[in-house]
Write a protein that binds this DNA or RNA. Structure first.
Ligand SMILES: [Mn+2]
Ligand SMILES: [Mn+2]
Ligand SMILES: [Mn+2]
Ligand SMILES: [Mn+2]
Lengths: 225, 225
DNA sequence: TTTAGATATTAGGCATGTCTAAAAAATAAT
DNA sequence: ATTATTTTTTAGACATGCCTAATATCTAAA
């Protein structure tokens, strides 16, 4: 069974489905209308309308007033969009010299281009990358994701070591901060000190540089040990 | 005066404007609703609706029942879309190994991606190409086009020589035919014989190969002498 | 110059996707 | 267990973009 039977989605439906997929990944329970509204930066009323349509297309299970669950078909479609988004991000950074804080908006448009062959060729051209510029895994054509185990920097003990493999927040301001302090994907880190009072920490990067980071920062850096 | 004051167009408006621009290039006179309807493969009623909107945005001059003329602003916007279309075509052929008959549909989607920096970087990455895979000139950022003088192969005299620089028809079937017979952009040709009866001709390609071509083909190949 | 045929526009409808305001249902508080 | 609050849905509206059917206008023929 290939994805021949999957419904065709509009740009907007793809965006909603991607948002629902991401929200589903975080907390396990069902995703609420307000959560989606927040993610999509629109009104709950608009979300209710869309949920009905996505329910009819069987990409989500929708029980009025009780939030939604994404279906297997929905997951497949969301992962295809995410695959495209992340491949385009790699292209923008690797080939067009975008910095990692500039790619998100453009990839959010490019991810909707429909051609299947385009994505296959792009993937090949990029050398079948497994991770995007933010360290997030790129699903394969069938939606399979080889994710690596990772945990927030905040959970590493003092004297613990690891490698920065991804960021939770991909906002331009956060990424530019990381550039500034020299915390890049792949950097080896060691936790030197943790301040219990405010959740801030002190880390050593690449055995060279000491950085102080606030709780907000520490929660958004993901480490592989 | 940059294009700061140009209106923002929707995808659909961009497609109409591009069609109107291309139709304007052919015959000099005004473009009719039916012409546009034919080009856009939709109904004249839809065109009338759109012409009103494009008129309000001042990208065309619209007098009811008398067709439209594109304005200077309209030309600038159309050329920006055409620039994007042709740059993406170059990318698909040069970098992703698409053949020249496969690129049109995909470029028709990619041409609407909005990021200005994306196109600048793409242009740079491709080495500032001046022509697309079909030999059509790529406008610069300001809409300036360095087109080369060219005329249909049908107008070359017997024993006349020249070089294939573009094709008028970019349909997949025509382009695949050209691939089959070995008539590519850049090929040097010499007209060996012309049959007045049916408009067919015999040409020598690269001093090596003789090809017979029908009138339909000959009208759609453009030559620089 | 009147008329027939071609061309173009409007009227009204439908689908998508958004909004505000009002109503309904679920959840939290008393 | 009832009330208050929050969450969610519906009703009605608007913009875009397409359609068919009816009407208006232009143009070419008689
Ligand atoms: Mn998107
Ligand atoms: Mn990313
Ligand atoms: Mn297009
Ligand atoms: Mn082309």
């Amino acid at each position: 069974m290939t994805d021949n039977s999957l419904p065709i989605l509009t740009y907007s439906e793809e965006n909603y489905l991607k948002a629902i997929f991401h929200l589903s990944e975080e907390g396990k329970k069902s995703v609420s209308t307000n959560d989606i509204s927040g993610e999509m930066k629109n009104r709950p009323a608009s979300v209710s309308d869309m949920l009905r349509k996505l329910g009819e297309k069987k990409v989500i299970e929708y029980r009025k007033y009780y939030g939604v669950h994404i279906t297997e078909d929905g997951k497949k479609l969301a992962l295809q969009t995410i695959r495209k988004h992340r491949l385009w991000e790699v292209f923008l950074v690797e080939k067009l010299n975008f910095s990692w804080d500039e790619v998100h908006e453009v990839a959010d448009e490019l991810e909707h281009i429909k051609s299947r062959i385009l994505i296959q060729r792009l993937d090949e051209y990029l050398g079948f990358p497994k991770f995007d510029p933010h360290g997030d895994p790129i699903p394969d054509e069938y939606g399979d994701v080889r994710s690596r185990p990772r945990l927030p920097l905040s959970e590493i003990e003092v004297n613990g070591t690891g490698q920065i493999v991804a960021v939770k927040d991909s906002s331009a301001s956060f990424l530019r901060y990381l550039d500034k302090v020299g915390a890049y994907i792949g950097a080896r880190i060691k936790v030197l000190d943790k301040v219990e009072f405010d959740g801030s920490i002190e880390i050593l990067v690449d055995n060279k540089k000491t950085i102080f980071m606030s709780k907000d920062v520490v929660n958004n850096i993901l480490i592989m040990q």
